[in-house]
């Protein structure tokens, strides 16, 4: 850590500083973080970057359907990654799919983080029956495979963006709750909490103003890894045909479209969106893995 210079040295006092320092001291994590940032920016500015709007019926030409990569289009431009069954430019469809995938993954991750963190903090601080009840629920949720719960829920509810987000939140909040509770239990017995109590601060203020900042490390780690798994889970559900509707095509749906023509050799329709999904999830996971290493007390001093 010394070799990174005094500039980073000062920033390691805060949790976010430590996280940033941890990422920058690992070449692998740095590459992962840069890739993630690049993909997020691509998603945000997608409509301005994509060669065509793949969902504007006026822009696509059915005669251009299923062209291999690098084919020229009817109007002279080049389809870098080929076209799909409707004659859409694959690259543009992928950029739009990336937007949907990241938005759904991030949104469900954030909601699960808020719900799980709140419940975990309350369980640790209040204790007793409330704690027992919340933890029983956590055990139940973690005991069942996430994909199965989401699958059954969507089988009952039907398709839809908000239904998918709801299902993803439901299967993810318990991870946060468990991690936050464990961290908060340690914090609760520290002197600064005692000091805050004797100062007569209100419970919410102690919980969220004083203890929460000290519970950030596990929240950051679990949050990073959960966003990756949410993106992956959404893609899986959409591939199975019970996730996002056809009007909101995520990367998973693009891959599903290519599945039907894979055996006839038109590989590009599913290979490229899949590669993009893989790079996205892998980059986030590499960063998350590094953060876990940085923040895990078991690795300290080794």
């Amino acid at each position: 850590m010394m070799s990174t210079g005094s500039k980073w040295h000062r920033s390691t006092d805060t949790t976010l500083g430590r996280a940033l320092d941890g990422i920058l001291t690992s070449p692998k994590a740095t590459v992962g973080a840069i890739l993630t940032l690049f993909l997020v920016l691509t998603a945000i500015f997608g409509p301005w970057l994509a060669p065509q709007n793949p969902y504007d019926l006026g822009a696509i030409d059915f005669f251009d359907a299923r062209l291999p990569p690098m084919s020229p289009s009817m109007n002279g431009s080049i389809y870098l990654l080929g076209t799909d069954g409707q004659g859409r430019d694959m690259l543009s469809a992928m950029i739009y799919g990336l937007r949907t995938s990241i938005a759904v993954g991030l949104l469900s991750g954030v909601v699960a983080l808020v719900v799980g963190t709140a419940l975990g903090m309350v369980a640790a601080y209040v204790g007793g029956r409330v704690d027992a009840l919340i933890m029983r629920l956590v055990d139940l949720m973690l005991g069942l495979p996430a994909i199965l719960v989401a699958l059954m829920l969507l089988a009952m509810l039907g398709q839809g963006v908000w239904k998918v987000i709801f299902a993803l939140v439901l299967v993810q909040w318990a991870q946060f709750a468990r991690a936050v509770r464990a961290a908060a239990l340690v914090e609760r017995n520290k002197e600064y909490v005692e000091a805050a109590v004797s100062l007569g601060l209100s419970r919410p203020r102690i919980l969220f103003g004083h203890m929460l900042p000290n519970c950030l490390p596990p929240i950051i780690v679990v949050g990073t890894l959960q966003v990756a798994s949410a993106i992956s889970a959404e893609a899986t559900l959409s591939f199975l045909g019970i996730g996002l509707p056809i009007t909101e095509p995520s990367l998973g749906l693009l891959i599903a479209n290519g599945y039907k023509v894979l055996l006839s050799g038109q590989y590009w329709i599913s290979v490229y969106p899949g590669l993009l999904l893989l790079i996205l999830v892998f980059s986030i996971n590499v960063v998350g893995d590094r953060l876990r290493e940085v923040f895990n007390p078991r690795f300290l001093g080794r």
Partner: peptide, 25 residues
């Protein structure tokens, strides 16, 4: 270890399709 992160990150359904593409097609 990098391989194992890759194993975690590979979307299960896409990885299956790639197996079909490579070994069957």
């Amino acid at each position: 270890m990098t391989g194992s992160i890759l194993g975690f990150s590979l979307p299960n359904f896409w990885q299956g399709m790639m197996l079909i593409m490579i070994f069957s097609v």
